[in-house]
Design a protein around this nucleic acid. Structure first.
Lengths: 337, 337
DNA sequence: CATGCGATATAAAACGTTTCCATTTGGAAA
DNA sequence: TTTCCAAATGGAAACGTTTTATATCGCATG
């Protein structure tokens, strides 16, 4: 570990110029004579100079680093988002500091403050719901914050989402159109706006528009996991009037649902039809392959990061509330039309 | 966005003490009279002071930030590792800057240099193989580097792994013990030491120990994905002498293998038996549930980060080359004994 | 041959901490 | 009281850049 303590001053001396000139060369400032530039560049190469980003950050008040807060990076869903963010960040020469919140209010607030302390230039946040304490912190933030796959509430932040209500409507309607007069709905906790207000609303609207009644017990809430999907479906299967069509709030839950059905000796899609949500890699790793609502997590991450760069560069922003298109990817868990 | 420009100097003035004293309070230095401490703490609260980590980093030459380089965070496998790293990092008050390399030498080198420029206190690296250019860079690193689930080569870095050779041996042997005289082996590219030297060697050793010959065409190489596992197995199924037991290098490939078998009208485990590798969440999301070698990615990440903190704190280190225990998780893709 | 002006280059002041060293304080011992 | 020492505090230099204000250079112009 030979340490690297060659500073801009050393380069300046080596090249016979001032620190300021070296700084200009390093930062690509055009006001440098080509011969000088070359002289400096050579000195840099010779000495193996690498600018100290921390000193740079202190002097310029920019760190070219953004903070990313997600509930849990080990979840394929957030991981995909993170990848989208990182790719665009790299493209614009930013790095990301990643933190897991486990959707805990305390961790979210703590993480936010840590990131601000580290002087990140901006933050991308993803979380199930926006606790008001957190919104208060957001309001005090000296740097811009962009929400990714997270609904705004109480404070108008830039955000990137799909239309969850319409997506749920489309999925439910598709099942209804296949002749079902009951559609089961298995999703995450209703306290999360995305379920309680969006998906649920879309589901009910589709029923209504088809003139179907809403049955309370056709909806079961889980915690997004495979196990909770499996369990929910097992419970539903015990009923005589069990719906033969299921819309699951996530792919992982949909996998659980399908396996519960198969374990009970039924066939998908012949006896039961299932539609998932998110179109994670899982969707094609099951038999039958899963029909699912496409929520383009990678794209959401990428667009959110791009939006953040625009804000940071004070570029023109046409719409700070971006709604990306969704669609339903038809696969084998649905019968052919 | 009300900016936050209250500095340590403002706090000092507000509390009627010197900057040095405020610094001591903030850093928990014991040499401060309780009454003074209180006075300063009050001023901090009143002003909403938040220390500037960048300035702190410049002055102290410590950033409490570590760099993490993984091939692709959107892969469940690396995501799990990252979570292990982050959890332990948080525990020790570090943050992580995460970067994706796509296993590209250029990106790895570039990322490494960016991280060093940002003055991270240490780095955790994961990658399929250690290109010699990268090793050269590692040698020049002013901060410690720890390898996670990555085999050392050419330079003796601290590393955390499992015994891949033995794990492959165990898996193959288990299949042989089930009465198979041929065992198919479907894994990633052999250039990667982990396949070419470790898993392959374990596989062969198991065959040898059982007095079985090695058939060249019983081994098919893919790229770790579901699709490549599916394809490999389809190819193998076309042969008359197709092995009825398969050891797959990753769970995702194993899923592909199982589906290929099922698509061809056979049953797992009755007609074919399959063992995977890694024990990702996928293993229980398939029917039959997958028997698989447990590679504890979360733990590897956690231990790697812990190891890094030990190095950073100059703590006693018993063994810088950690080999975590592995085991085989028996599930339904293997017949009962 | 002086003048003026853009293009380049320099010097030095920030940036907000930590840390080393010096100084003050307060109380116990003499 | 005085003396001494440890504990508590303060002052100021360092950390490695960017940036602003200022100076110099080179050259066309009159």
């Amino acid at each position: 570990m030979n340490s690297n303590n060659v500073t801009i001053y050393d380069v300046a001396r080596e090249a016979g110029v001032s620190m300021a000139t070296v700084s200009r060369v390093v930062n690509g400032n055009p006001n440098v004579k080509p011969t000088t530039r070359k002289k400096v560049q050579d000195a840099i190469d010779r000495l193996g100079y690498r600018p100290n980003a921390v000193a740079r950050g202190l002097a310029s008040k920019k760190t070219t680093t953004v903070g990313v807060i997600v509930p849990d990076i080990s979840n394929i869903f957030f991981a995909d988002l993170a990848r989208g963010i990182e790719d665009v960040a790299t493209m614009y020469k930013y790095n990301i500091i990643l933190g897991n919140s486990d959707s805990s209010r305390d961790k979210e607030v703590h993480l936010l403050n840590t990131l601000l302390g580290k002087q990140v230039d901006g933050i991308i946040f993803m979380g199930g719901r926006l606790h008001e304490d957190l919104v208060e912190e957001f309001k005090k933030s000296p740097v811009p914050i962009v929400l990714a796959a997270t609904l705004n509430q109480g404070y108008d932040l830039p955000a990137v989402n799909i239309d969850y209500e319409q997506a749920a409507y489309d999925a439910t309607q598709m099942l209804i159109n296949h002749g079902h007069d009951r559609v089961g709905f298995i999703t995450g906790p209703l306290e999360q706006q995305i379920n309680g207000e969006k998906k649920f609303a879309g589901y009910r609207r589709a029923l209504e528009d088809a003139g179907l009644p809403f049955h309370d017990n056709d909806m079961i809430l889980g915690n997004y996991t495979y196990a909770s999907g499996l369990e929910a479906m097992q419970k539903m299967l015990q009923r005589d009037d069990c719906p033969k069509a299921i819309f699951a709030g996530t792919d992982e839950m949909a996998l659980g649902v399908i396996h519960a059905i198969q374990d009970a000796g039924f066939s998908v899609p012949n006896d039961f039809e299932v539609v998932g949500h998110d179109n994670t890699r899982l969707a094609t790793m099951i038999r039958p392959k899963l029909t699912t609502v496409v929520q383009p997590m990678y794209d959401i991450g990428a667009v959110a990061m791009r939006l953040l760069t625009k804000i940071l560069n004070a570029e023109e922003i046409e719409e700070k509330n971006v709604v990306l298109p969704h669609r339903i990817e038809r696969r084998d868990s649905l019968r052919q039309d």
